[in-house]
Computed example of a mutant assay.
Amino acid sequence: MRSLPSGLPDALFAPAPAAERIAFLKGRRFAHRGLHGRGRVENSRAAFAAAIAHGDGIELDVQQSADGQAIVFHDATLDRLTGRSGALADLDAAALGRIALAGSDGETLPTLAEILSLIAGRVPLLIEVKSRHRRPARLCAAVRDALAGYSGAVAVMSFNPEVARWFSIHAPAIVRGLVVTEEKDRNLPGRLRRHLALWRARPDFLAYDVRDLPSPFAAAQRRRGIPVLSWTVRTDADEATVAAHADAPIHEHPLG
């Protein structure tokens, strides 16, 4: 079973977006968590400024603070990237804003609103909503509210199909994506789960694990007009895979 018969259920339950809606996603390189390394910490102001200077779009992550704000940070816990330990969600935005990013030049954890002001529409932006909960409405609402009035090209995405589902209902003007990996889930139940997630999310694009490309599922969606971005591109071989099977890389492999 490569896909469901003729792709008809996919077209019915997850129709492809208008081409102009997702045009900004194609042919663009996105720096994964900003252009980090060489003294720049992931998801930091310095990493985002470097991506802008390099002409790359930006991919970043948001977690929910105790007071329901969208905080730009990848991990659910503070341990790896700060001198603190414990769950990010246990602290409010003000407290998080006083915690330094380890290895940075005095940077602290920013809110999404702060980073939107920094980017200011200069490059396209992908916001990955990190949600372990089936009902991510509070964080989704925080992202939507932060984006109110933002005029730059932007899309949200998540592994959790409920995130894209929420935006399709409550903020349909915002481009939305589904993040996909087939790792350890390539059998028949896994293929069915991917279709069910697609139908639930109704995404405008897919962000696909580069290790899974080429993928019959990704190729089928791409053929019918749903762009495929791919993460995390780190090597020349990954670049070649994306060139052949996707529309844009989310990379840690800057060219030029």
Score class of each variant (00 low, 15 high):
residue 14 A to L: 06
residue 225 G to I: 08
residue 78 L to Q: 03
residue 43 N to T: 00
residue 27 G to I: 09
residue 46 A to M: 07
residue 144 R to T: 08
residue 240 A to Y: 14
residue 17 P to E: 05
residue 25 L to T: 10
residue 217 F to L: 11
residue 160 N to G: 11
residue 110 P to Y: 00
residue 109 L to N: 01
residue 125 L to Q: 07
residue 228 V to M: 07
residue 54 H to F: 11
residue 153 A to C: 05
residue 201 A to M: 00
residue 157 M to C: 13
residue 81 L to M: 15
residue 182 E to Q: 14
residue 175 V to Q: 04
residue 148 A to M: 08
residue 247 D to E: 12
residue 202 R to F: 07
residue 210 V to D: 03
residue 34 G to S: 02
residue 2 R to F: 12
residue 63 Q to S: 01
residue 149 G to L: 12
residue 256 G to D: 11
residue 93 A to W: 05
residue 87 A to S: 13
residue 111 T to Y: 01
residue 108 T to Q: 08
residue 25 L to V: 09
residue 26 K to A: 09
residue 165 R to G: 06
residue 152 G to N: 03
residue 221 Q to S: 12
residue 129 V to T: 07
residue 134 R to L: 13
residue 124 P to S: 09
residue 192 L to Y: 14
residue 196 L to Y: 14
residue 40 R to Y: 10
residue 116 L to C: 02
residue 118 L to M: 12
residue 249 P to V: 02
residue 167 F to Y: 09
residue 208 Y to M: 14
residue 150 Y to N: 03
residue 129 V to M: 02
residue 167 F to T: 03
residue 210 V to T: 07
residue 27 G to Q: 05
residue 59 E to Q: 03
residue 184 K to R: 14
residue 101 L to Q: 04
residue 63 Q to N: 10
residue 162 E to S: 15
residue 1 M to P: 11
residue 39 G to W: 13
residue 141 A to C: 10
residue 76 A to C: 00
residue 156 V to L: 03
residue 161 P to R: 13
residue 189 P to E: 15
residue 151 S to P: 08
residue 75 D to S: 12
residue 222 R to L: 09
residue 29 R to P: 00
residue 190 G to M: 12
residue 54 H to V: 05
residue 22 I to C: 09
residue 256 G to V: 10
residue 185 D to L: 11
residue 255 L to D: 06
residue 8 L to K: 10
residue 113 A to N: 06
residue 122 R to N: 06
residue 230 S to R: 04
residue 215 S to A: 10
residue 43 N to F: 01
residue 61 D to P: 09
residue 50 A to K: 02
residue 117 S to T: 15
residue 147 L to S: 08
residue 245 H to G: 00
residue 32 H to M: 07
residue 28 R to S: 04
residue 61 D to A: 05
residue 186 R to S: 12
residue 15 P to W: 07
residue 238 D to H: 15
residue 197 A to H: 12
residue 221 Q to V: 06
residue 163 V to D: 04
residue 228 V to L: 09
residue 250 I to N: 03
residue 193 R to S: 14
residue 237 A to Q: 12
residue 209 D to E: 13
residue 111 T to V: 05
residue 135 R to P: 02
residue 23 A to P: 08
residue 67 D to I: 02
residue 32 H to F: 09
residue 197 A to Y: 06
residue 41 V to L: 07
residue 212 D to P: 03
residue 238 D to N: 15
residue 255 L to Y: 01
residue 180 V to P: 02
residue 92 D to P: 00
residue 108 T to L: 00
residue 243 A to V: 11
residue 14 A to T: 04
residue 28 R to W: 11
residue 79 D to R: 15
residue 233 V to D: 04
